[in-house]
Measured scan of single mutants.
Amino acid sequence: VDYIVEYDYDAQHDDELTIRKGDIIKNVKKLEEEGWLEGELNGKRGMFPDNFVKEIK
């Protein structure tokens, strides 16, 4: 499942992704941690907030 970024987010920890509006995040999975998703961007896998992105259908 792929998501498109709607709002910029700067990573706060090493396991998070810095994302920018218009980025496409690939292979996204829901995490047990409420409010977070995990996906791949530019060869890096990491977490990001689910309210900054929208699923591409």
Rank of each mutant, 00 (worst) to 15 (best):
D8Y: 04
K30D: 07
G22M: 06
D50M: 15
D50K: 15
G43A: 09
G35L: 04
Y9P: 00
M47Y: 07
I24K: 05
L41E: 01
L17F: 03
E40R: 07
Y9T: 01
I25V: 10
P49G: 06
G35E: 05
G46T: 01
N27V: 05
K29P: 01
R20D: 01
R20Q: 07
N51H: 05
D8G: 07
F48G: 01
F48A: 02
Y3P: 00
D10F: 14
L31E: 07
D8I: 02
T18L: 03
N42M: 13
K21T: 07
D23T: 06
L17I: 07
G22F: 07
K21V: 12
N42L: 10
V1P: 12
E33Y: 14
K29A: 11
I56N: 05
R45A: 04
L41I: 08
L31G: 10
I56V: 07
G43F: 14
L17V: 03
D8W: 04
K44D: 04
I24P: 02
K54W: 05
E33D: 12
E40I: 08
D10K: 13
V53R: 03
L17Y: 01
D50Y: 15
M47H: 06
K44A: 09
G39I: 01
F52V: 06
E34F: 10
K29H: 11
K44Q: 14
L41K: 04
K30I: 10
E32I: 10
N51A: 10
E34G: 09
E16S: 04
F52P: 02
V5I: 03
G43L: 09
P49T: 07
I4H: 05
K26H: 13
K21M: 11
T18E: 04
D8K: 05
K44W: 09
G39N: 00
M47T: 09
E55Q: 05
V1E: 06
K26G: 08
N27Y: 15
D15S: 13
K26A: 12
K30P: 10
G22I: 01
Y9E: 00
E38M: 08
W36V: 05
L41P: 00
G46S: 02
H13W: 12
N27R: 12
E33N: 08
E55T: 05
V1T: 11
F52W: 03
L17P: 00
E40F: 11
D8V: 03
V28K: 01
I4A: 07
L41F: 11
K21G: 07
E33H: 13
D15W: 15
L31M: 11
N51D: 10
D15V: 10
